[in-house]
Amino acid sequence: MGIDLSVEIGKLKLKTPVLVASGTFGYEENYEELIEKNRLGALVTKTITLNPRPGNPPPRIVETASGILNSIGLQNEGIEEFLDKKLPFLLKFKIPLIVSIGGERIEDYGLLAKRLDRIKEISCLEVNISCPNIETEGGCLFAQDCYLTYGVVKAVRESTYKTIIAKLSPNVTDIVSIAQSAFDGGADALALVNTFFGMEIDVQTRRSKLGSLYGGLSGPAIKPIALYMVYKVSKAVNLPIIGMGGIVSADDALQFFIAGATSVAVGTGNFINPQITREIVEGIEEYLKKNKYTSIKDIIGTIDEKTDK
């Protein structure tokens, strides 16, 4: 008997529970074969904003111990050019499309959601309120404040019936209260976590190793912290979670499912191995088969919390 890997995220049905994190996978001709063969549950776009953004000055990537620090700065062509030039390519594939949206003001998110709501091939919106490389009107990330989180998600909710995923930041004191605010605003699912604020300094010049002063840390270095946050939120908030943060193996991914994630996303791992998502899907299947489960759902949130070893 085959293994059932399908999961539901709001109204969205995924054939496999493995996605790519926004901004870590391209959509040009050289990615076509990878998209077709990687057994992705859905395609997630790079974050799109209302107007084009040039992005931050280089260097934008610095390698750190088991991680990378990035300051890309949401470089993108803006919503209209995205719809015109990039969307047709993304619609060639027979997998659901999740469009990530970002902005500097709450209204931006509402406007973007309204514009995308008219396009029926787009299955779902991921609301990126946690990019560490963007200046917002609140002076902090939207996802660092319960009211702003609620406000952005609500603005999107009022503009679309599509499934909404709120992408949260780990740079908070209480991730559960932020997750609850996203739920209250009308989110159908949560994606956690985005990158951690971080910096690297060149001791000779005493300047940042990035073109910006600081950036977002990702990769295996953050995995245990991301896993902890997924676990905490899954216990407290009744929404499906897309778990992410340093996943580079099937074992990493399985830990997120057991902690309570319904789906997982791979980000930095794609840079190391562009076929990593397929290998992770195969590894999950193997684990389920070996342990006599028939569905990925059999292991979601099944952590054994006994500690007296």
Binding site: T24, G55, I72, Q75
Partner: peptide, 26 residues
Amino acid sequence: ENIACGLGGCLGCVIKTKQGYKRVCK
């Protein structure tokens, strides 16, 4: 430049040109 994905996906390895930022890898 510091190149991460190498495939043009991550926009990490850009340099500034007369036509805006361009990816060194792609």
